[in-house]
Amino acid sequence: MFLQESTPDTTIYMIMGYAVFSILSAGYAISLLARRRKLLKKTETITRMQSEDTNSSIH
C-alpha cells in the first residue's frame, strides 16, 4: 500500500459490494410482499368459506 503510485482499480469489488446490498434488500422486500399476498389470499378463502357455511346453515 505504501509503495503504490496510482489508485488501484477496485471497481469490480465496489460493484460486487453494491450487488450484495441490492440483492439482499430487494429479496427481503419481495419476501415481505409475497407473505402479505399469501395471507390476504388466505383471508379471502376463510371469509368465503365462512359465508358459504352460513348460507348452507340457513338453507
Binding site: T7, P8, D9, Y13, M14, F21
Partner: peptide, 19 residues
C-alpha cells in the same frame, strides 16, 4: 470523492457501516 489508496471499493464503506 474517490479514496486515493483503496480506489472505488472504499465506497462500500458507506452502506457497510450503515447496515
Amino acid at each position: 470523492p474517490l479514496e486515493i489508496v483503496m480506489g472505488a471499493v472504499q465506497r462500500v464503506f458507506y452502506y457497510h457501516v450503515a447496515s
